[in-house]
Design a protein around this nucleic acid. Structure first.
Lengths: 345, 345
DNA sequence: TACACATGTGTAACCGATAACACAATGCGT
DNA sequence: ACGCATTGTGTTATCGGTTACACATGTGTA
């Protein structure tokens, strides 16, 4: 660990400058020197100190990833994709998670900043304070990309999927199956998912019932609890559109525990298309996010901004796609004119 | 990014030395100066450069985590726990994943080493070359902890759960329910899980049938395929003990798709107790790994080795616990003396 | 009074790779 | 022959926080 470029230089009979040029590839190095330096490096087991290089160049080869919870399968897939792509560009990924807390998110960004990450990829949720901090960073020249993190004055780049049209397609699908009481579980009424859901209901001439909308928490617990609540309604919904697959999968499980058969009496749609969705019981109808593509573009954008000069913040929107599987089916009373709530069992 | 300790010093009316002492906590700093420095830091938004500090102190505040695949839920939970605990000690976590490839693992360690991580936490699988590399690192003074990574001459610290007794308990549980044809899905015959499985069968006087043992791959695909294979056997097993929950959950799903009712005709046991296991359909009987504890101890060990001098490599084994849920039940023919393979449907 | 000792602070060398700079030595076109 | 670009190399200031060192104060004890 104490082998420095000077040691290598001495061994190879050249100067540090030449060693540095060899390492960075900047400037000329003679064929002869090149060989001798390479030999010296392997003989001494030299590993250049990134700390020293970073101090001088202000580049660490690190991309920071601010994420709420790695235990969400979608996040995990995203982190994996990000890491794979970063690797191809010679970058490492430094993950800092926030557990959904805004304060923690700010601390996470500071941690990453202290370590001198070359760029930041940030996922929701975000507080105004966090957005402001990120905007400042971005203005000071650091590439910042929000992943599905929309800010009103667009203060940094936004990479997102078209959640609105994805949600619209999902809800349209349910409407097409004859469902009239379609519930929603999501984060907030300002989300693209909610807007897509609402637009689909409106287009179908269906009422938007407050008690069928559960906003606030998402995730396994939220899915479980919301399903319990929905089941207790006098007019049970016949379909549930959930914020993400993690939530939708727990809806499936809760429904099963309540003897609420899917898809016979209840249709469920998720969002993300994580690995488990393909193989849940029953397989989950969901909206596919192009995860690999998201990771690929995020890294490519960071690299591009690192070399090119910083342009105006831009929005990149990727399309989503509905995959119909076994968790959705015709509405219980489809075909009958009756709107009654007759149920078996 | 261009705010340095000198700027803070000037603003606070002190010298850099005092600012540094404030930051590190080494040496005396007067109450008055302390306050002024703290104010200056917040006013300027100063974030000390780790690169500069690292260069001098040779400590980066980074712990490297070499991991196969973050998409495995257990791994994700582990990574989260590791990160939470690291945070408490002021460390960041640098994750490098290997996708199960030994070559990639070596590259990952080199990447981590180049970034100057203060310690390494490594998970399986490992090749002999990787083990050798880790042993050298550890000998050169870097804390290295294998998480469930047993090496024959113990060349670095090993933190593990007692997989053998966990597997034993799981298999004993199945035996106790009257199962006689118990299948196994795992990585290798030398694993603790296999040994526990074998020991339990032996203790119960049950034969160890080659066709009921599937070693090699694990994970969702492997679970799915193995279940398909087991279902086609002339003597279908009545129980399956799977390597981990990710595998076991896909066994559940495959069984469901095959109309092989769980737990009526097939009992399934997993290993890990990930979040989803609690809520699968049916809820999964599994062996609990003390994940938080693993993360906590791993970080604590690294920190300890960083301050204390390096001791001999040690083994820390944590206990496991069987949680019985709905995926296991009495063997189909339990109570009847007949060993026949009569099955319904 | 004196002397040890705790408390508080400024100064400057230092960590190790980088890159600007100066300076060779060569080849090539005119 | 001369100018000029190309290739190749050594020297050295630099990045920014840390820490050894020198040097001030105050406080308690012999």
């Amino acid at each position: 660990m104490s082998v420095t470029a000077y040691d290598v230089a001495k061994r190879a009979g050249v100067s540090v400058g030449t060693v540095s040029r060899f390492l960075t590839g900047h400037g000329y190095v003679g064929k002869d020197s090149r060989q001798r330096i390479a030999d010296a490096i392997t003989q001494l087991g030299f590993v250049p100190s990134r700390a020293a290089a970073s101090l001088r160049t202000k580049k660490t080869g690190l991309i920071g990833f601010v994420v709420s919870d790695l235990r969400n399968p979608f996040t995990a897939v995203l982190a994996t994709a990000l890491q794979e792509r970063s690797r191809e560009h010679g970058f490492g990924v430094f993950i800092a998670h926030t557990m959904g807390s805004p304060d923690r998110a700010i601390a996470a960004v500071d941690l990453l900043r202290g370590h001198g990450v070359d760029g930041l990829v940030v996922t929701p949720p975000a507080s105004p304070a966090l957005v402001e901090q990120l905007a400042e960073l971005r203005q000071s020249g650091m590439p910042v990309i929000g992943l599905g993190l929309r800010t009103d004055p667009l203060s940094f780049d936004l990479l997102t999927v078209d959640t609105r049209s994805g949600a619209r397609a999902a809800t349209d699908h349910l409407v097409g199956l004859g469902h009239e009481r379609i519930a929603f579980i999501g984060t907030s009424r300002s989300s693209g998912r909610y807007q897509g859901y609402r637009a689909a209901l409106k287009a179908a001439g269906l009422p938007l019932q407050r008690e069928r909308v559960q906003v606030g928490a998402v995730g396994p617990d939220a899915g479980w609890n919301a399903t319990t609540r929905f089941a207790a309604l006098p007019d049970r919904p016949t379909a549930i559109f959930a914020f993400d697959d993690a939530t939708a999968l727990s809806v499936l499980q809760r429904a099963h525990a309540l003897d609420w058969p899917v898809p016979k009496a209840l249709s469920v749609v998720g969002f993300d298309d994580v690995d488990l969705a393909r193989r849940s019981v029953p397989p989950l109808t969901t909206v596919v996010q192009p995860t690999d593509e998201l990771g690929r573009i995020a890294v490519a954008e960071i690299v591009r901004q690192l070399t090119d000069s910083l342009a105006e913040p831009a929005v990149i929107t990727l399309p989503t796609e509905l995959v119909v599987r076994g968790s959705t089916g015709p509405a219980p009373n489809a075909g009958s004119a009756a709107k009654g709530t007759r149920r078996k069992s």
